[in-house]
Amino acid sequence: MGDLWLIGIGTGNPDHVTLEGRRALRDAALVLVPRKTKGKDDLAELRHAILAGAGATAEVVEFDMPVRDESLPYAARVHRWHDEIARRWSAAIARAGVSGPVALLVWGDPGLYDSTLRIADRLSPAPRVRVVPGITALQALTAAHAIPFNTVNGAVTVTTGRSLRDHGWPEPAESVAVMLDGACSFRALSPVGLTIWWGAFLGMDNQMLEAGSLAEAGPRIVETRAAARARHGWIMDTYLLRRAQE
């Protein structure tokens, strides 16, 4: 294992790939592209479109993503899943037999609520890791709604739906950005004084947005999200919650 490049590609819009990211894609010798479960073929197709748009000529090797064992406790389930992904990376790289940098296209940014760096730590021998930053879902969300990420001098907590559901509003944040929430965990909060800005498929042609008081917009989001997931077979979404200013 030599150089491993983790290239942030934004949230689905090929125009979100930075100039540095495009150069890295052109300079890579090998690109690994994950194949996910049936119904998510468009995610791999979008990666191929980004490679073509960047003028990349690297060899492309696809590999099947493993499925998490839902019978295990959460931490053990994720740990074992990451181990298996690292093994499949190593096997795909060995099969290719290419000399030169190996690249992976990472949704959003490799440093924000993404496990690619943790998986890379499992590789042996350890590669030289280069991270090319990308536009995050939070940037795409606030841009789509034309809102600031934070209030004046206000704290923002970035968390997960699981944490929001289990622990409630994280004090003393005025704003809470929620990632990885497949259960619409905002329903566990009292909606009084809360505004929500929600977005799905951010940056893509089928981008969906909802906003308003949590009491009014929350039920719309639950219904819209369920319909979109049933229609596409998958969904990537995020949202920002904010307390009313006194």
Rank of each mutant, 00 (worst) to 15 (best):
A86E: 11
T136M: 09
L202Y: 05
T57A: 09
L6T: 00
L105P: 03
R162L: 12
E62F: 06
G8R: 00
V132E: 01
D64Y: 12
A126W: 07
P14L: 02
V178E: 11
L202W: 06
R26I: 10
R47N: 04
G203M: 06
W107N: 10
I196K: 01
P133C: 01
L19A: 13
A76K: 15
T238M: 03
A144D: 04
L138V: 14
P14T: 04
L46R: 15
D42K: 02
V78L: 10
A52V: 08
P191S: 07
L112I: 15
A96Y: 00
A92P: 02
R229K: 12
P172M: 01
E59Y: 01
W81Y: 14
M236A: 08
G199I: 01
V176A: 10
R47Y: 07
M208D: 05
P73I: 11
A143Q: 08
A120Y: 03
T157S: 09
R242Q: 12
V98A: 13
A137S: 15
A58Q: 05
D41P: 06
G182H: 04
D69R: 12
P125V: 11
Y239L: 03
Q207T: 03
L164G: 15
E84N: 12
L180S: 09
I7D: 02
V102R: 07
P110D: 09
R243N: 10
L43G: 03
S185V: 12
S71D: 03
G161Y: 01
F149I: 11
P101I: 09
F186P: 02
H16E: 13
G53I: 01
